[in-house]
């Protein structure tokens, strides 16, 4: 039997236990990410299922990039649980950037629960909040 693609397996969500997000309430999970770069930009792709674009914040301070996503899902109280295999909670992950990026041109895009942040290389380092587009 040959299959071209590998079968997917569920991975347990990794919960974040740290001091840096003590201001957030509820459980916090670390999203799975792909990080890659070419000569022009560094790109981070993160899986954040259940998160609408309004609920994502991307902050770059000094050389630390922080991604936070809050899912919009809430289970109505009248529903009774039959089976619960995953927990919902905020997504949080931060990265230390090894290169200076062009902060004015950081682009972020959220599509079906996948956040893609593109950080063009070279530029001065100033704190800046990044707006999100959805599509």
């Amino acid at each position: 039997m040959t299959t071209q693609t590998q079968d997917m397996q569920a991975r347990e969500k990794q919960e974040v236990n740290g001091t840096s997000e003590s201001t957030m309430s509820g459980r916090t999970f670390s999203p799975q990410v792909d990080i890659f770069e070419d000569d022009h930009a560094l790109t981070i792709v993160a899986d954040m299922p259940g998160v609408p674009s309004d609920n994502v914040s991307i902050d770059l301070k000094e050389d630390v990039l922080a991604l936070v996503g809050t899912p919009s899902l809430s289970i109505p109280e009248k529903e009774e649980v039959v089976l619960k295999e995953f927990e919902s909670g905020k997504y949080f992950r931060q990265f230390r950037l090894s290169e200076v990026v062009d902060q004015a041109n950081i682009k972020a895009h959220l599509d079906n629960g996948v956040l893609r942040v593109t950080l063009p290389k070279i530029g001065p380092a100033k704190p800046r909040k990044v707006p999100i587009t959805e599509g």
């Binding site: 899986d47 899902l73 109505p76 529903e79 649980v81």
Partner: peptide
């Protein structure tokens, strides 16, 4: 197995929720 499920019900319906990003 993938994907993971969250199954609930009320008087009229079952609700199956699942995280399948992208």
């Amino acid at each position: 197995v993938f994907p993971l499920l969250h199954v609930t019900h009320d008087h009229d319906n079952f609700y199956v929720r699942s995280e399948v990003p992208g």
